[in-house]
Design a protein around this nucleic acid. Structure first.
Lengths: 209, 209
DNA sequence: AAAAAAACAACACATATGTTCTAATACATA
DNA sequence: TATGTATTAGAACATATGTGTTGTTTTTTT
């Protein structure tokens, strides 16, 4: 269902107004700026916009209009905890359960960039131990907290017998797990299927030049 | 200058309310939810919050409150035109002057990620012609439109005599400019100082695994 | 062309909401 | 203690603003 010219005019005004003022316009604001003869016409068309799913209105509340969909600038970003630097071989400190709030250091990414994934955390790479994965010193990597993995995934994996977490490329073999550093100079090693736990999987990497 | 407990209670309520409803609360909304005895007390403390620079108020406008600073979720993201794919050797098509609006394809990044830079555009890398810069097929690179450069910068540069733009690492030598591909297999070449024009500089690169 | 539906117009009304005034109380300072 | 300042209370007021009613015009359908 398409918008009439008056409706798209109103809708655009809503976006502009909210962008500028950070609060929605009143019906009379809309009336004046869109050259509409009567408040009832504005009300009428706002009802239409609501029927068409573009806005939501709260009854009897002044300026009680909310933009829906991608026009709503709410939640366009996600704040992700930056847990620290990760160096070759050094163990990673992973976040507590469910504690994705209240972190001292964090980065902000657009939701578009991370998709619908939740439970994300970030690490900064120190050194060039991941150079084969085209990740270098200073890069930021974003991980998704999960214990699933596919062959070849780059994961943060906890080795029980070592009592430590490292970052490796993982492969499932017949009766063991191969963990391969992302640097040719270091050798791969193997763990027993019950001696490890995947804690997170690489999702995105970012470099500021 | 610090906030009194009442003021931070109000301020937190403002953030929560706006996050939930997408429009600011009325003074009586604040009064009720913060257990305040009188509207005048709310008004009084809102004035204080405004003096302390945390909010902005518009006189005589219902719900005319705007959060300032990082609490204001406005403009936490920037939309950047994605101009297309760039392959080795292939010329790049740069945006028209000032046309950073109305583009068919775009990506959204958090402002935190791109800083205060403006006039940004993005390209997607096709192939592995930039592998030495740790940039591979599918990566997204973000460029800043500028004609300044430092030695070693990776820039989009227009070669007049070729009538084409390519992406190279640039070095200023005594009487010529060295343009170095980011792939060892391809050789560098040189241009005269008046035969080129830097059009943009690499700012950020992003990879989704 | 006639009938029905959609959209617009003008206006009045109720109330949602910011403002203001006065007084009381608490708090700090000299 | 005295005195000034900051904060709180209660209430009344003015207006900003959503809603409803009735009628007209325009558009669509039959």
């Amino acid at each position: 269902m398409d918008l009439t010219s008056k409706q798209s005019k109103i809708f655009n005004f809503l976006k502009d107004f909210i962008l500028e003022k950070d609060y929605p316009p009143s019906i009379r604001d809309i009336q004046n700026h869109c050259d509409i003869s009567s408040t009832s016409v504005v009300d009428y068309n706002l009802k239409k916009l609501e029927e068409k799913g573009l806005i939501r209105r709260d009854k009897e509340i002044s300026r009680g209009i909310e933009l829906l969909g991608t026009n709503n600038m709410r939640s366009h970003t996600v704040r992700i905890p930056l847990l620290g630097k990760i160096a070759a071989g050094k163990p990673i400190v992973l976040p507590e359960e469910g504690v994705t709030d209240n972190f001292s250091n964090s980065i902000e990414l657009s939701r578009e960039q991370v998709g619908t994934k939740s439970d994300l955390f970030a690490l900064q790479i120190k050194g060039n131990s991941m150079i084969d994965a085209l990740i270098q010193d200073g890069d930021i990597i974003i991980l998704e907290k999960t214990n699933q993995f596919d062959n070849g995934d780059m994961v943060a994996v906890w080795i029980k017998s070592d009592n430590a977490t490292t970052f490796k490329r993982i492969y499932k073999l017949d009766n063991k797990i191969k963990l391969e550093p992302m640097n040719k100079r270091m050798k791969a090693f193997f763990v027993k299927p019950n001696d490890f736990n995947v804690q997170g999987r690489l999702v995105t990497s970012i470099r500021n030049w």
